[in-house]
């Protein structure tokens, strides 16, 4: 069960941009993780998404499907702020289109569930 506190810090709080370690911004994985939020709250929500089986349990597949969905984003985009803005738009349009999943009763956009799951499966930023 996702705790409400974690949920506030994760999904609803939508985290804050994690600070990227020097030189890391060139790695897409780190840029994405920084954009999604590299925090225990986000990971906890991501773990719940995986446990409920509503998203793919594979980091590469998750990242690829997010990247594909964000067609407006340049494939090599490494600016966390730009990725985050694009993810926000995707999340909102998922909700509007009914592209949602049920995670322990919480209704989440499919793309945000994927993003949290991706964070949960990724090693923390150094």
């Amino acid at each position: 069960m996702i705790s409400r506190r974690y949920f506030l810090g994760g999904a609803v709080g939508l985290g804050s941009l994690a600070v990227l370690p020097a030189g890391a911004a060139t790695r897409p994985r780190d840029a994405w993780l920084a954009a999604i939020g590299d925090s225990p709250a986000v990971r906890s929500v991501g773990a719940a998404c995986l446990r409920c089986g509503v998203v793919e349990a594979d980091r590469q597949v998750l990242l690829r499907s997010l990247m594909t969905a964000l067609a407006t984003l340049a494939p090599q985009e490494a600016d966390p702020a730009a990725i985050r803005a694009a993810l926000g738009a995707l999340r909102r349009s998922d909700f509007a289109a009914g592209e949602v999943v049920n995670v322990d009763g919480w209704i989440l956009a499919r793309s945000e569930a994927r993003a949290y799951a991706f964070a949960a499966l990724s090693a923390p930023l150094a």
Binding site: A11, R91, F95, I107, A109
Partner: peptide
């Protein structure tokens, strides 16, 4: 959710 107001738990 679509308005980023928050989330609902059923």
């Amino acid at each position: 959710g679509a308005a980023d107001i928050g989330r609902i738990r059923l």
